[in-house]
């Protein structure tokens, strides 16, 4: 992937298409999945099984009036969604699909993804603050607090995998699961903590307090309309994709499948499966309480994640290299 040529342009186009399509197809898929969970059928009338709902939604989003509240901090209001969207999209660049098939096969890919995710709470807090609205303020602060609290257990849980593999390159991590068992078997505790933390990081039910409809109207993006709302939504679905991808790569073997040849198809299926299960949660679960959520992170997940690191480290000393 070196040198600026057609290859790079193609990859960039692919990256762009990926992030645009994820959100659109994500919205459609979510409406369908939740519809069926609720004994409904979801979008049905526009196109085959409501597929034309996608372009319709897109056109609606783009053509809507872009309202800026009078009392909002204009500059921040315009810029704040970027703080959420740009890191979310940029983190996609670290995705790898097969050895040698990647946008950029970074040596510290995992680190890059986490670094990008760290910027997002700033964006949420800024969005919440800039609107001069109490719902967005509460939502933004909730989002910032939640994201910061859950980054720590997420990092600590990923640390176990990194220690075991000895590399932060996502290709290496997935390849390490080609011969041995997947990390979900080797480090089940790490998997549980990581998945929970990812779910909280992407503000999905049952951790969706930042946009808690029944309390805060629409949370931090209450005041956003038109394409700015679309951008926030896009960032959220991108984060959902990235989170599912990370779980699939770190703990579910990435592109590997036992007894079958390795292929990006497996990675895709695993990611879609994980995304669908977050929609399942959304259709089923109510929301936790804010303080319960914080307590869960600081009092349970972080200590357990630390203990998990100790456990992995001691097992690495004791057990043969192939297993840890």
């Amino acid at each position: 992937m070196s040198g600026l040529g057609w290859n790079t342009v193609l990859w960039l186009a692919g990256l762009f298409a990926l992030m645009a399509l994820t959100a659109l197809i994500g919205v459609y898929w979510e409406r369908k999945v939740i519809g069926h969970f609720q004994a409904r059928r979801g979008p049905l009338h526009h196109g085959w099984h409501g597929l034309l709902q996608l372009p319709a939604d897109m056109v609606k989003m783009i053509s809507k009036e872009d309202v800026v509240p009078t009392k909002a901090d204009r500059m921040l209001f315009q810029v704040a969604p970027m703080f959420v969207a740009v890191p979310a999209f940029t983190s996609l660049a670290a995705m790898t699909f097969m050895p040698g098939v990647a946008f950029v096969d970074m040596r510290h890919g995992l680190f890059f993804v986490f670094a990008m995710q760290t910027v997002m709470p700033v964006g949420f807090a800024l969005i919440g603050w800039s609107c001069d609205n109490k719902y967005t303020l509460l939502g933004g602060l909730r989002a910032a607090a939640q994201l910061i609290s859950y980054e720590i257990p997420m990092l600590l849980a990923a640390m176990g995998v990194v220690m075991s593999v000895g590399s932060m390159r996502l290709t290496d991590i997935a390849q390490a699961q080609a011969s041995g068992p997947w990390f979900i078997v080797r480090q089940p505790i790490g998997f549980v903590i990581f998945s929970l933390a990812v779910l909280a990081e992407i503000n999905r039910t049952p951790f969706d307090m930042p946009e808690a409809e029944s309390e805060l109207v629409a949370g931090y993006h209450t005041e956003y309309s038109g394409m700015k709302f679309g951008l926030v939504q896009l960032a959220e679905y991108t984060a959902l994709l990235m989170g599912s991808y990370l779980i699939a790569t770190l703990f579910l073997g990435g592109w590997n499948m036992p007894l079958l040849p390795a292929s990006p198809v497996w990675l895709f299926l695993k990611t879609v499966l994980l995304m669908t299960s977050t929609m399942w949660f959304r259709a089923t679960f109510p929301r936790l309480r804010v303080d319960t959520l914080m307590e869960m992170s600081w009092k349970i997940l972080i200590p357990v994640a630390l203990a998990n690191i100790m456990l992995v480290a001691s097992l690495m000393l004791v057990l043969p290299k192939r297993w840890f």
């Binding site: 939740i34 969970f37 609720q38 004994a39 409904r40 039910t205 049952p206 969706d208 808690a212 409809e213 029944s214 959304r282 259709a283 089923t284 679960f285 109510p286 929301r287």
Partner: peptide, 17 residues
């Protein structure tokens, strides 16, 4: 009440049957 605690409306629709 199920909407208040943050479900997406699944219990709501089941109950409305």
């Amino acid at each position: 009440v199920t909407m208040d605690i943050g479900t997406m409306g699944t219990p709501f629709i089941y109950a409305f049957k």
